[in-house]
Amino acid sequence: MTDAPLNRPPVTAAILVIGDEILSGRTKDKNIGYIAEYLTNIGIELRQVRVVPDSLDEIVSAVNALRSRYTYVFTTGGIGPTHDDITADSVAAAFGVPIDVDPRAVAMLSERFPPDQLNEARMRMARIPEGSELIANSVSKAPGFIIGNVIVMAGVPAIMQAMLDVVGPTLKTGTRILSDTVRAGLREGDIGTALGEIAQAHPQVAIGSYPFWSETGPDTNVVVRSRDPERLGQAMAAVKQMIEQEQSRLRR
């Protein structure tokens, strides 16, 4: 039923969102969903998202916990020119390496700013942990960087997306997870027990139910996910048959 690629271990990822402004609610995060969809489309499974404040200890702890557990860690935020942009310093501390102004980063910034505008604040964006690979930034020129399996990107969505476009083609990927969705026309409680039985019968397929309010009242979408198209089809067929049976029962 399965071939060799389907048996490959998954490539996994975590997102670490950094910033007091996210935790306070002042800034609404727009990066998590974008990164999650991007990774799903290339066969990388997002397993965890964390949000931490602009605190060196908090960032170091989170980076070390996540990088030891997942194939990749994507961080967003905290690499700008202000005093509270401490992500680069924190990542350097997590890896136990020095950090200093990187001539390569200065050259990138010089493409946008003349020498007299490369002030102390902007030069903070050229401080890169030793041993890092730079990520080009076509929007504002200030680079992100990669060290080990940690990919450090800006928090501004347009800049983050530009950086992800640079990094994405270089990433190791796994077998893409396929998905299919059916609208049940029923409440989640109407199908919960039967759906659980189908999930038990198809242990290598992920089945989820997602209630919503439609123009006709409460409804449910059922989503089936698998790397194996054959298993996906079998599980979805069972789900559709169950929905038809439950709709027929309720109409009596």
Rank of each mutant, 00 (worst) to 15 (best):
T2Y: 06
D3P: 00
P5F: 13
L6S: 13
L6F: 05
T12C: 05
A13H: 07
A14D: 02
A14T: 02
L16A: 04
V17T: 10
G19Q: 14
G19S: 13
I22G: 05
G25P: 12
D29W: 14
K30G: 03
K30M: 02
N31R: 05
I32M: 02
G33I: 03
Y34C: 04
A36C: 06
A36D: 03
T40P: 00
V49W: 01
R50N: 10
V51M: 09
V52H: 01
S55F: 00
E58I: 02
R67D: 12
R67T: 11
R69I: 00
Y70W: 12
T76M: 04
G80A: 11
D85L: 14
A88T: 09
V91C: 10
A92Y: 11
A94I: 07
P98K: 06
I99P: 08
I99L: 10
D100G: 03
D102F: 04
V106I: 13
S110I: 01
S110F: 07
E111G: 10
R112C: 02
P114H: 03
N119L: 02
E120Q: 13
R122A: 02
I128M: 08
S132E: 06
E133D: 15
I135G: 10
V139I: 15
S140H: 14
K141C: 11
G144F: 12
A154D: 03
V156F: 04
P157W: 06
L164Y: 09
D165S: 11
V166T: 12
V166S: 05
P169C: 08
P169D: 06
G174T: 08
R176W: 00
R176Q: 13
I177Y: 01
V182D: 10
R187H: 13
G192I: 15
T193R: 01
Q200N: 10
Q200P: 03
A201L: 11
H202D: 08
Q204T: 10
V205A: 09
I207M: 09
S209P: 04
Y210G: 01
Y210V: 01
Y210I: 00
P211I: 08
W213E: 07
E215D: 09
N221L: 14
V222E: 11
V223W: 11
V224P: 00
R227V: 14
D228R: 12
D228E: 12
P229I: 14
P229R: 15
E230I: 14
M236N: 03
V239C: 05
Q241A: 12
M242D: 05
I243H: 09
I243R: 10
Q247K: 13
L250S: 05
R251S: 13
